[in-house]
């Protein structure tokens, strides 16, 4: 990956899932975009030492989102009541209901399960890579994923 076009293509293919992950930690869309931009510039700076770019970026985004949300906790509590919920998925006419239902169900999951689900389904990472990103064994990542799917299925079926 060397030319400008390569970089841009790679960014476009991975930026959506990365943005989704940042927002699972409660970051607003604009904060998530800032986090994404910082993470990508940081990755470019260390690109020669990185073996797995996707895992590096997911870890970078996750840590930044976690730190940002922790720093903004008090401000967030004041604002979340007034703020309208922002959609995390791209709007499409044929699955509008499913999109809304999944967003609601995702919001109800614990964040530990949510982030594993996002990295597996939309990020395309293996359980091994997810374990490396979060710092847990791959079996634990697989367990969290199964619990998340089970909870989602139950929520979607009941809804």
């Amino acid at each position: 990956m060397g030319s400008h076009e390569d970089w841009q293509r790679w960014f476009e293919s991975h930026s959506g899932p990365l943005l989704l992950l940042a927002r699972q930690w409660g970051a607003s869309r604009s904060d998530a975009e800032d986090i994404l931009q910082d993470a990508f510039v940081r990755f470019w700076k260390h690109r020669r030492r990185v073996n797995d770019p996707a895992a590096y970026l997911f870890r970078s985004v996750r840590n930044a989102a976690f730190n940002l949300v922790r720093a903004q906790t008090s401000r967030r509590k004041r604002l979340e009541i007034a703020a309208a919920p922002e959609s995390v998925f791209s709007p499409a006419a044929e699955d509008g209901e499913l999109r809304a239902a999944v967003e609601t169900a995702l919001g109800r999951l614990p964040v530990e399960q949510r982030e594993v689900l996002v990295m597996k389904i939309w990020g395309g990472l293996t359980f091994q890579a997810i374990g490396t990103v979060i710092g847990i064994p791959s079996n634990t990542a697989a367990s969290r994923y199964r619990y998340a799917l089970a909870a989602l299925r139950k929520d979607l079926n009941s809804g």
């Binding site: 476009e12 899932p17 989704l20 510039v41 998925f89 791209s90 699955d95 499913l98 939309w122």
Partner: peptide, 26 residues
């Protein structure tokens, strides 16, 4: 089936200005 349904949903992409900012900073 559930995984396929979920995978069919596309996450929202960041605004074009994000890439522009990345490019300028680099």
């Amino acid at each position: 089936e559930l995984e396929q349904k979920l995978a069919a949903l596309r996450p929202d992409s960041p605004a074009p200005a994000v890439w522009e900012g990345v490019r300028r900073r680099i």
